[in-house]
Design a protein around this nucleic acid. Structure first.
Lengths: 210, 210
DNA sequence: CTATTATTTGACCGACCGGTCAACTATATT
DNA sequence: AATATAGTTGACCGGTCGGTCAAATAATAG
């Protein structure tokens, strides 16, 4: 009973779009409402605060990231190291697309909010940390599989996974700073392999992937 | 002639402190003035805008970073690879100190502003990009020296230097996100060596450094 | 048709935003 | 002592901030 509405989803999507292309603080509740085609009162009917909308937007981003980046790249019929390289390839494609569409490389939604809010909002910091931990677990499993297959030397998969996530966030940050998607291409594939202590992946890919 | 004043430096230092521990947008001109013990009119006597104060704060940060982190770590009587490890050690010390003093790991001043403002303020983005390029050049020289000494395999020093800077920014971002300086210790030394394609540094350090 | 519930509306709140300005004070030069 | 200059003061500007609220409206259940 009562009316039904898609205002909630529209607000979440607006928040994701606007905060991704600018920042948390630079997007006001009013602008959020305008973009969603919703009145302010409706905003506060669905969300107790701007922070809570942001948390919902982070949930939405997890879905989106899984569908558009992670699942295609980490498809199990690719060998594990190729998955990680495919992941960086997707990140490059995404950055290049955003630059073409908006003129800017927006970086990583999660990393952006982490940097802007970690020292100011413990709830958002915790959520962001959790998302990054989930990602780290995925990388860890992939790396562990590569070690089992002896594609990588024996080592601590968990710490290596953290290092890979750190590297990915750092590369993304630099690409944003220089507004240059090409940086991801230049730094992605090659050095992530080196980071893992692997040999150059290209020769290996020739026999095991192609 | 006329009065003399240290208000300018006090404003720069306040900006550095406040924006570093929170964010650009969360610090208002009013708060900046209060912390510096200065009236608003004086602010705009010295700086045409908040953005210009931020640019001055970035210049100040370059000095500070050079004195407290870079020069001690990149001291030329250390072998080149040890310099890079010493750099990460200093970054860990700094993060741990900040956490003890403020309760938060604040990340990297330059990286923070890069993430928050790159898509919004082209002038600040350009300044930040320049600072990171200067840092990359320092790393490049160090890496090139290591390659000459055959401490590292032959490779493109410039791209490797970019990868190292990216990795450092990523590690710093993760440490901030998890509010855990230990992450820098865990990920710093070991994986930066691996990133460079070097052997484990500890044995080498035993003969060439100690 | 009525009651119930979900949603929408838009005016309103005090606080703060970045920035302006004209008057005033302190110092140094002549 | 007169003048020029550098710095200081604090009130003031229009606009936006996140958030509140009471009343109106729309849809469903009985």
């Amino acid at each position: 009973m009562g009316q039904v509405s898609d205002a909630k989803q529209k607000l979440v999507q607006s928040a994701l779009d606007l905060m991704y292309s600018r920042s948390y603080a630079s997007v006001g509740v009013q602008e959020l409402c305008e973009r969603a085609g919703v009145q302010k009162g409706s905003f506060y009917h669905f969300f107790p605060s701007k922070r809570d909308l942001t948390l919902a937007a982070l949930d939405r981003q997890r879905e989106l990231g899984r569908c558009t980046i992670l699942e295609p790249a980490f498809c199990p019929d690719r060998p594990p190291l190729a998955r990680i390289e495919a992941w960086f390839d997707r990140l490059y494609d995404h950055a290049a697309t955003m630059k073409r569409k908006t003129g800017c490389v927006p970086g990583c939604v999660v990393g952006n909010l982490a940097v802007e809010l970690s020292t100011q909002d413990e709830v958002i910091r915790h959520k962001v940390a959790t998302l990054l931990k989930d990602l780290t677990r995925l990388i860890e499993q992939t790396v562990a599989e590569a070690i089992r297959r002896k594609d990588l030397p024996q080592q601590n998969a968990k710490v290596l996974a953290e290092a890979i996530v750190a590297y990915m966030e750092g590369v993304t940050l630099l690409a944003k700073t220089h507004n240059d998607p090409g940086l991801i291409k230049r730094l992605g594939r090659k050095y992530v392999t080196q980071l893992m202590g692997g040999h150059d992946g290209s020769a290996k890919r020739l026999r095991s992937e192609r």
